[in-house]
Amino acid sequence: MSHCAKSEKIVSIAEKIFLALFVLSIFSTFIFWWSGLSEKNALDSETDHKFAEILNKNFKQGDIVFTENDWDLDFLKYLDNGILPVFLDLKNATEQSVARMKNSDERVFLLMKSEKSREFYVKKLNLKVLETLKAGEGEVVIAETLFKTVRKTLVFSRDIGKAKRVAFSKGEKTGECRKVSEKKWQCSDENWNYVGLTTASFNGESRQAVWAHPIAGKTLEIIFDLPENSRTLRFNSVFAESAYHSKNTSPVNVEILADGKTLLKYANPFTSKVKENVAKIPENTKEITIKLTTRDDRQRHFVFNGFISDEL
């Protein structure tokens, strides 16, 4: 067979393959898009309703929810107010990250597509299963994390309602913030002007945090009484939302005092990166004060989280 005839034959075979693939593609398009195959992995309506029903009945403030199917969120439509947060990052979650997402000892709800993956996630996240509840084709696992390193005596986001005082001061003048719930202190009629629980991205990971928007020319003071055996402060802060895109580059100045003596002092830089701090707390400290100031308060969407532990 000549070289030319050979190549003609190869071309002919290739053309037939393309034709066959084209025919196959028509069939696959019909089968996939017309037969319901494209939507087959969605949670059915019963499962959605059951997920919501179980959460509405069992969820307590402070618990957190993870959902295995992170793109079909129809169950959210049936949830009562106050059931939050719902994290969509179960696939990437580790035992440490789950522990960090929680404030302290609250429970974890895993909404599983089926029973099959329960064992995998319980093992991966190092959980102790408290209860499993059938939810249509899926399952709700209620568990607690076994990953514990230190005892947290104070968690800022969890305990913001326990603050002794939250106020703005300017010289002699002070404006007290009004405690409106266990998670929020309202400081004026402006919606944004409060100190309270929120979530924010901390270097790409969603975390519970305290929203604390400073006001130029004033000092925002948040004071906590310290429980016994409070030895180490871990304090993280960052600009939430898109504040770091703002033209306003003023840092937020943070000062943390232990019984009036400066423990930590820094200017939170104008970036999206989290500023992480650790400081030892002197023995027998009674009170800790967080002071926040800024030169220009436009879009200073400042949030912080962290905790105080008995870690030496």
Binding site: G82, I83, P85, T198
Partner: peptide
């Protein structure tokens, strides 16, 4: 932008959407 979902939920007191 996943974290914004919970930011909205905390701010609004609900994670239940009105429309999807």
């Amino acid at each position: 932008n996943e974290h914004i979902l919970n930011s909205i939920a905390y701010e609004f007191g609900t994670i239940r959407p009105l429309a999807v």
